[in-house]
Design a protein around this nucleic acid. Structure first.
Length: 559
RNA sequence: GCGCCUGUAGCUCAGGGGAUAGAGCAUCGGACUUCUAAUCCGAGAGUCGCAGGUUCGAUUCCUGCCAGGCGCGCCA
């Protein structure tokens, strides 16, 4: 456990004991002892930590909040907590100021834990699957897919660091209507190139990339047209979607996103999984026939209306495959499922939650995160996107235009449920308006000092030998406090499913460092102080790296 | 019509029952003979959409309304 979390834990224990002692003395009738919440006050004058527990207890104790706080403080045993000063303030807060030595422990912690600093076992190794992106394998990915990739990947990183056993999965929808139409479109282009009479499918994919694929396919399968029609169609669907999936894999890898599993819908069909789900639901009495179709009584589980699982033409609907897929997820041993969906799928949540319950799992075990839309702007002007007109900014184009680091940061700096304005010009610009450079620059600056020290043959002391107690300047203490916050930030970002907390944290840390940089000199200071500051610099670089790694953003040594 | 998301500084957004509501950008004023000025320091800027309710306390929770976005298929 990190020094910061350990210190906080000790403080909580001491406060809880004080509450108990005070309760006995004053005869408080306390049924529920509130969890001792420590917060870092906004105002520096309010100390290092504050708790509102006296205000929470006031009702049960039948005493004024400030009086409760006083009583608690009278019984507080500060041994082992680093607490230097405690006082009652405002409406009944208990403000705690700590001795600076706890911060020096933080620096030691970072030196010892290195890349692991910030990790915790909060998640208790719970097996969690995050399914995200899952774009249809019929064409290039769009900017919402890109946002999903950045958010899903970073949330996975964060939950992993918070002690969950995380698996990333991509569901390849290669067996549905879209895939079928895509296959037909590909076949039509193939025939067109072979100068054979063809018919382009209604609702097909007319975009140029289909024709390009058809050209490649002609070389790989020159005698395709000699096969029966049904085989031609099946081949095109399989070959085409496989091809697109390979492209998606490559594009996502370039975006820094790698999945543990690419799950094919067609494997569900091949394994008779849809039939099995339908049979199961039938056995549970959750199906009925109407108008020639088979319906699932999802209203029994709070859905708005019942849903068709098998259409009157005998073809199962999308949700049938999705039920089979989610059953498979549970059967693979995942305790908690998180799906990240685009805003156009929110209407689908109710039926999916119903499905999960029908399959015998708890409603809360499936969690849906809905990402909101991305508005693309160029110099403040909205970029109109229309798939039909072919005016469409793909994930790849986005990356080419702004680069991986800026793209990821822009997607990660906002809460997932917030509509996102993404200014292409701003993201691509290497200017002070662009926050990603601000963070990276902090890291590059540190590396620059370390390089300078190296070439001046200045020795950086070991963590044991460093005179950390010399780090007393306000800018130094503020910086170390910021360093101490990473483990807690990771836990809270994991709990709240909020990758943007880490993006903000990285920015705040960079800000603390830049301030330190202008207020404190490193090289040329008296030797012991210089050594302590060099150790501090290394710790800051480490924490910047750890934060940026969670975000999937590079920590450059030079800029 | 119903459902979901959003409404906080000029702009883009954090925050989330409690202390004087924060950050970046923009604006204005300062700071490089010294480790990268892609930086720092300071100033101004807010009826937290509106109206009720719950509470000792609401910007935060509840209800209604208004505005913007997105959905509402035997498509996926």
């Amino acid at each position: 456990m990190s020094a910061a979390l350990k210190t906080q834990a000790q403080i909580r224990i001491a406060l809880a004991a004080a509450v108990e002692a005070a309760a006995e003395k004053h005869g408080w009738d306390i049924h529920t002892i509130p969890n001792v919440e420590l917060e870092v006050p906004r105002e520096k004058a309010h100390g290092d930590f504050a708790t509102n527990l006296a205000m929470q207890l006031a009702g049960q104790a039948k005493m004024a909040p400030r009086a409760v706080a006083e009583a608690v403080l009278q019984h507080l045993d500060a041994a082992g907590t680093h607490i230097e000063h405690a006082e009652v303030a405002g409406p009944g807060f208990i403000n705690l100021r700590l001795a600076n030595d706890w911060l020096h422990d933080v620096v030691k912690d970072i030196a010892q834990q290195g890349p692991d600093y910030g990790k915790s076992n909060f998640g208790d190794n719970k097996r969690v699957m995050l399914e995200f992106v899952s774009a249809n394998p019929v064409g290039p990915m769009n900017v919402v897919n890109a946002r999903a990739a950045a958010v899903g990947d970073t949330l996975s990183n964060i939950m992993d660091a918070a002690g969950y056993d995380v698996s990333r999965e991509y569901y390849v929808n290669d067996a549905g209507r879209q895939a079928h139409l895509f296959g037909l479109s590909l076949l039509a282009r193939y025939k067109e190139l072979a100068q054979v009479e063809y018919e382009f499918p209604e609702d097909g994919y007319p975009a140029p990339y289909v024709k390009e694929l058809a050209q490649i396919m002609r070389q790989e399968a020159p005698d395709l047209l000699e096969k029966p029609q049904q085989e031609q169609e099946a081949f095109c669907k399989r070959w085409g979607t496989d091809r697109i999936v390979e492209q998606q894999k490559a594009d996502l890898a370039a975006f820094g996103v790698e999945f543990d599993v690419w799950f094919r819908e067609r494997d569900l069909h091949a394994g008779q999984k849809l039939e099995k789900v339908i049979e199961y639901l039938k056995d549970q009495g959750l199906l009925y026939e109407q108008d020639g179709a088979t319906w699932f009584v999802s209203t029994k589980f709070d859905d708005d209306k019942d849903r068709v699982v098998v259409k009157s033409d005998g073809v199962p609907t999308y949700i049938t495959a999705d039920m089979a897929y989610h059953l498979d997820k549970y059967q693979r041993g995942f305790e908690h499922l998180i799906n990240i969906w685009g805003p156009d799928h929110h209407g689908y949540i109710g039926r999916m939650q119903a499905a999960v319950q029908a399959l015998g799992y708890k409603a809360g075990s499936l969690e849906i995160i809905i990402l909101q839309l991305v508005n693309l702007l160029r110099r403040g002007e909205r970029v109109r996107m229309s798939k039909r007109a072919g005016e469409f900014v793909s994930m790849t184009e986005l990356m080419e235009e702004v680069g991986k680091d800026a793209a990821r940061y822009f997607f990660l700096m906002r809460a997932p449920d917030s509509h996102l304005d993404f200014d292409l010009g701003l993201a691509a610009e290497e200017s002070q308006e662009n926050p990603v450079y601000y963070i990276q620059y902090a890291h590059a600056r540190i590396c620059s000092i370390l390089r300078q020290a190296d070439s001046d043959s200045v020795q950086c002391p070991s963590i044991e030998d460093a005179a950390l107690h010399l780090l007393q300047a306000e800018a130094e203490l503020d910086l170390i406090k910021k360093l101490s916050e990473l483990p807690g930030e990771i836990v809270s970002a994991a709990e709240r499913r909020g990758p943007h907390h880490i993006a903000r944290y990285a920015h705040e840390l960079a800000s603390s460092f830049h301030s330190f940089y202008t207020h404190c000199r490193v090289l040329g200071e008296e030797e012991a102080l210089q050594g302590a500051r060099l150790v501090l610099l290394k710790a800051v670089a480490q924490v910047l790296q750890n934060s940026l790694r969670l975000l999937g953003i590079a920590a450059p040594e030079r800029m």
